[in-house]
C-alpha cells in the first residue's frame, strides 16, 4: 500500500509541468540608493526597569520607557518617551513624541507631540508643536519659523545698449620732493 501510494506520487510528480525557469535579475554594478536605516530600523529602547544617569546621544531613534536622568541629543532622529518613560534633562532631537513625563527644555528641528496624559515641565522650541487635550504642560512654547525656499531670481534683463568702456587718462606722475 505504501509502495503504491509512493509510486502514484512519483507519477504525479513526473506529470506535473516543469517549473518555468526564472530569468536571472540582472544586477547592476552601479551603487543603488540606500534606504535610510533610521526609518526602517526599530528604535533603541531604554526599558521599563532601566535607569540611566548621564547624557545620551546617537544617530538612531530612541524609545525611553524607563528613567533617564541626563540630556538627550539625537539631532537627526526621533525620541519617543513612552507612557512609563521619565526624562529629567535637556532634549534635542529631530522629532519628540511624549506619552510620559519630561522635566527639561526641549528643542526639535521638526515636531514635538505632547500626547494625552503626558506631563511636560520645561520650555519647548519646535517647528510644529502639537499638544493633545488632557496633556499637562508648564513652560514656554516657541515656534521655529522655517521660511519657504525663495524662488530663484529671474535673470537680469540684458542691457539695452553695450556699455562703452571708460578710458581713464593716465595718472600724472607724482612729483618727487
Amino acid at each position: 500500500m505504501w509502495n503504491r501510494s509512493r509510486r502514484e506520487e512519483e507519477t504525479q510528480a513526473r506529470q506535473a509541468p516543469p517549473e518555468p525557469v526564472k530569468e536571472a535579475i540582472p544586477t547592476s554594478s552601479y551603487p543603488t540608493r540606500r534606504v535610510d536605516e533610521a526609518t526602517t530600523r526599530a528604535a533603541a529602547v531604554i526599558g521599563k526597569t532601566i535607569l540611566v544617569k548621564g547624557s545620551v546621544s546617537g544617530k538612531e531613534d530612541l524609545l525611553v520607557d524607563g528613567r533617564l536622568e541626563g540630556d538627550v541629543d539625537l539631532p537627526e532622529n526621533r525620541l519617543t518617551v513612552g507612557q512609563g518613560g521619565h526624562i529629567e534633562g535637556k532634549i534635542r532631537a529631530r522629532e519628540i513624541v511624549i506619552y510620559g513625563v519630561v522635566q527639561g527644555n526641549m528643542e526639535a528641528s521638526e515636531r514635538v507631540e505632547i500626547r494625552k496624559n503626558a506631563k511636560v515641565i520645561g520650555d519647548l522650541k519646535a517647528c510644529r508643536p502639537v499638544i493633545e487635550d488632557e496633556a499637562y504642560f508648564k513652560g514656554n512654547v516657541e515656534t521655529i519659523r522655517v521660511d519657504p525656499p525663495k524662488p530663484p531670481r529671474p535673470a537680469a534683463p540684458p542691457a539695452a545698449a553695450p556699455v562703452e568702456p571708460i578710458i581713464l587718462p593716465p595718472a600724472p606722475e607724482s612729483r618727487k620732493g
Binding site: P129, V130, I131, E132, D133, A135, Y136, F137, K138, G139, N140, V141, E142, T143, R145
Partner: peptide, 26 residues
C-alpha cells in the same frame, strides 16, 4: 488656563512666545 493647540496656534501665529500653565492645578 493651561495649554491647548488652538491657543498655541493663535498666539504663536502672530510670532509671539507663549508661556502656558494651568494655574488652578498649581
Amino acid at each position: 488656563g493651561g495649554l491647548n493647540q488652538q491657543n498655541l496656534d493663535f498666539v504663536t501665529g502672530y510670532g509671539n512666545r507663549l508661556y502656558a500653565q494651568e494655574i488652578v492645578l498649581g
